[in-house]
């Protein structure tokens, strides 16, 4: 068991023992290697199931919307930014939360890792920044930094931005030369090529909505895609409807997306849906100097107005 897991179990059992919270939300081991599933521990016994490794990529802030109980939550950098977003959007109040911060050194891209093996991965373990992966045929020692999820590679907030206590020492933030290189690549295409790029990106989409279900920002009780009166978007596999869904889903995340990558990780068809949200992150940053979820005293980007705002687009 790694040190982090040990600390998380200890901190969460203390919280429950002292009745500071009603439950702690964290991760437990999944049913297959490299899988983890979110869980809520209601008693000290259950905290023994908590684990932490580089597979805990999905965003736990997804599970705190409108909760009435007092909650302990394990939060890495991006989770903490989404918790801030939840607080500023009144989805939970700060005093209902006890945040156990986990400084993060990035999460693993399982698909990239699996592509190294001809058969299924049967065992996975970590030793610091090295990962040891076994399949039926072969065992490999690999560097974790070579297999990071694409959003972790450009992450500028590995340390939690808000926390009550920490489960480990803070880590050094990354220095990234050009954090929007991927967006600029698409921007440089011609208008036809852009259209074809996204056509090609979405060709495998099966409209399962895993991206929106994994996203902590998508908390509306009734989503526009499910409504039938009026029906905003067709529900079938029509190409236009698929693109409309992805376009609108992304736009609902404008100025709120923290680039946690939960949508990409949840996608069963391995579609990089971040190509939509990344553009919004770049624009928010470049036009308004805004990064989502850094400060609980600031109103969300699309909720504020300043005379200095760019208005060149309006006639």
């Amino acid at each position: 068991m790694n040190k982090l897991t040990q600390n998380i179990r200890e901190l969460s059992s203390n919280l429950l023992k002292n009745n500071k919270v009603d439950m702690v939300i964290g991760f437990k081991k999944g049913t297959i290697p490299m899988a983890v599933s979110p869980m809520a521990a209601h008693n000290i016994e259950q905290t023994k199931e908590f684990i932490w490794d580089s597979n805990c990529g999905i965003n736990l802030a997804n599970f705190i919307s409108d909760k009435k109980e007092k909650i302990g939550i394990i939060a890495k950098g991006c989770d903490s930014r989404n918790i801030v977003t939840h607080i500023t959007e009144n989805k939970i109040s700060r005093d209902k939360l006890h945040i156990i911060g986990v400084p993060c050194t990035g999460m693993i891209d399982k698909i990239k890792l699996q592509s190294n093996f001809n058969d299924d991965i049967t065992d996975y373990s970590e030793n610091g920044e090295d990962i040891i992966v076994k399949s039926g045929l072969i065992e490999k020692n690999l560097k974790k930094s070579d297999y990071l999820k694409s959003n972790c590679k450009t992450c500028m907030h590995r340390n939690p931005v808000i926390y009550d206590e920490l489960a480990a020492e803070l880590v050094q933030e990354q220095k990234i030369e050009d954090q929007f290189a991927d967006v600029k690549k698409i921007e440089s295409l011609s208008i036809e090529d852009k259209w074809n790029y996204f056509d090609n990106l979405l060709k495998d989409c099966i409209r399962c909505y895993a991206c929106k279900n994994a996203c902590p920002l998508c908390y509306c009780p009734s989503c526009f895609v499910n409504e039938s009166n009026p029906q905003w978007v067709g529900k079938g596999q029509d190409k236009t409807d698929i693109k409309t869904f992805h376009f609108l889903r992304a736009y609902h995340c404008a100025g709120r997306c923290t680039d946690c990558g939960a949508c990409v990780q949840a996608c069963p068809m391995n579609i990089n849906v971040r190509d939509f949200t990344r553009k919004l992150i770049k624009d928010s940053y470049e036009i308004y100097g805004w990064e989502a979820g850094l400060d609980i005293t600031k109103r969300p980007l699309l909720d504020t107005f300043s005379l200095k705002d760019d208005d060149s687009f309006i006639k």
Binding site: V183, I186, E187, I191, E192, D193, K194, W195, N196, Y197, F198, K243, F247, A250, Y251, A254, F276, K279, L280, D283, F313, I314, K315
Partner: peptide, 20 residues
């Protein structure tokens, strides 16, 4: 919104904003 539409291949000149 105009920027995102253009990003995915809809010409910017198709979307106009005005306050009248």
């Amino acid at each position: 919104m105009g920027n995102l539409l253009e990003h995915m291949g809809i010409e910017k000149q198709r979307l106009h904003f005005s306050w009248i």
